[in-house]
Design a protein around this nucleic acid. Structure first.
Lengths: 339, 339
DNA sequence: ATGAAAGCGCTAACAC
DNA sequence: GTGTTAGCGCTTTCAT
């Protein structure tokens, strides 16, 4: 706050060099803390920087070095979904914390509002050194080809024919869903339904597959399926459809707690008591699973760690270091007696 | 997706010029849709751009034009608070929607995690053409002086000695709080307490002042005050302290629904029924006010409109157009019978 | 309406 | 270790 701030535009590197009595290169070296500068040079340059209140111009740096020092976090969703889902908050927080130690800046791009095209141009236009893409739908295939122009890592396995080419960090949705569904079976449930996620997201697909593995593994029917889009409303609608079908069920795996938050009200209104009449288990140990009535047995994903991991792998990718193409993070069953 | 994407780095403006058979200046004019270009020139340039899959380099553009085409939205809070408070979500959504029509990009900077200094350097370093600062604490004074180096607009009146210099958009917190508190009085309440917001935020200060105006205006005591920081936990703690004081109250104004969401549980556990034993009114018509038990009479702020307005005024500021130094947006009382 | 030329502020070889 | 010299890819006068 002690910096002189006289008009005449921002001070330039050249002015710092003049004041410090060195060349522009030396100033540049000090700024980028190159090892090859004498302590005295460093001192005088730093003094000059302080005195002038000099701040390097990002655009010039980027243009000359071809590095932006910033990464994007792309969420191909509407802001409403983005803010409604604690999953995003936790992953972003993890990524932000990891990046806080570095010189990188995080730009959040909620692409449904920005327009997918605008975002793609932004990423391809050299605005960022790399990007994390969360919640990847199959209709966002184009993000995958972007990986050729900029380091890219996906949070959750991307849906794509060329999938095998993309880097991603994910949890084992299939296995976790199978395990939590088996709790229902262990609790004696025999007619087990599911409210699955969307077919165009890998999390939707994989969790359905896990449920199916559990029920067919126990010799049970795998026909009671309704789908939602992970939102509370869609969960309520799916529950209503499930009831309309008139087939009895005594167990239910809901592929996200957000959907469960909508579905539970519908079940209650239909007079179904949980867990007396039907056991319910879900996915995501968030606010909704914890505060549901009753609190739900669920799968906990390491969301914060996943965010940190995404950031770390992206930095490696940017640095050109070797990075495993797929990283699988562990999940946990949180037992709450709702099964 | 039809663009050729041969290696050899991104195509440059120069390559486009060569292919289109015009000069670089003309290409630049087409890109910036200058009026002084012949339709034919436009056509051939656009064809070349399409064929090469050319995307202008942002850094070069910024460096040459001294415009970044991006604005920052700064939230001087932790990510936890940021995601926990629907207010931010709605304001941001409003701003994002307004900006979606323009060529501007929005960078979200949650500054408690990024480090305030890092953010300030970022803003002063010419990375953005302007910035919106939301939720301004008195210890973030430094943001105000930033206004000298970059167009800045505050969401909520900034706390500062030099306050009179800053542009901001706000609601009339004093008046709204007074009005909603007067509902308590009209309902016959005579011992009215408040859970106020933090003293270092104008919203905290102003809402307390409004409450005080209402109670003293009715000749009632203005001594039952406990403070929180707008978070649910702080609301619960403040409610607990209020009860510990042992003074009876039959009315309570809680300065945010978020705090109310924490406070109500404490009151319930103490056996206080709402509104039978005590009337409760609050501020913010969000999820928490709507779904509280009972639903709460509250003040509704036009959060989305506020976000749009912030964006609009910032764009004007950037364009050098005259902008009112303070804009006050209207609020609404939402009656739910909890008083 | 178009082109030529001169930078924008910085980094990165390359010489010394 | 330090300075010199070219650019990075674009916009923008200024002529024409």
């Amino acid at each position: 706050m002690e910096t002189t701030d006289i008009a005449a535009g921002s001070p330039t590197l050249e002015m710092v060099a003049a004041l410090a009595g060195v060349s522009r290169s030396t100033v540049s070296r000090v700024i980028n803390d190159s090892p090859k500068v004498t302590p005295q040079a460093i001192a005088s340059v730093e003094a000059a920087i302080e005195q002038l209140g000099y701040v390097p111009n990002r655009a010039a740096r980027t243009l000359a070095s071809r590095r932006t020092q910033s990464v994007a976090l792309v969420i191909p969703e509407t802001t409403a979904k983005f803010f409604g889902d604690p999953y995003f908050a936790e992953v972003i927080q993890g990524a932000a914390l990891r990046l806080a130690d570095t010189d990188y800046t995080l730009s959040l791009l909620i692409s449904a509002e920005n327009g997918t095209d605008k975002v793609r141009r932004y990423l391809a236009g050299g605005n960022v050194d790399g990007a994390i893409v969360l919640s990847h739908h199959s209709d966002d295939l184009s993000y995958i080809s972007l990986a050729r122009s900029v380091p890219l890592i996906f949070g959750g396995r991307p849906m794509s024919a060329e999938g095998p080419a993309a880097h991603y960090v994910d949890v084992d949705n299939v296995h976790a869903s199978q395990v939590v569904t088996e709790r229902l079976i262990a609790a004696g449930r025999r007619r087990i339904a599911t409210i699955a996620g969307p077919a165009d997201m890998s999390a939707g697909q994989d969790r359905l597959e896990g449920w199916r593995a559990a029920v067919t593994g126990a010799g049970l029917s795998d026909e009671k399926i309704e789908r939602g889009d992970f939102s509370p409303d869609s969960g309520a609608a799916a529950a209503a459809r499930l009831l309309e079908r008139g087939e009895r069920f005594d167990g239910l795996f809901i592929a996200s707690s957000l959907m469960a938050s909508g579905a539970l009200g519908v079940l209650r209104q239909a007079g179904i008591r949980i867990p007396e009449d039907a056991g319910v288990v879900t996915f995501d140990n968030d606010y909704f699973a914890q505060n549901a009535n009753p609190p739900l047995t669920t799968i906990e994903q390491p969301t914060g760690a996943l965010g940190r991991r995404l950031a770390t792998e992206l930095l490696r990718l940017i640095a050109g270091e070797p990075v495993p193409r797929v990283t699988v993070m562990p999940t946990l069953v949180v037992e709450r007696g709702s099964e």
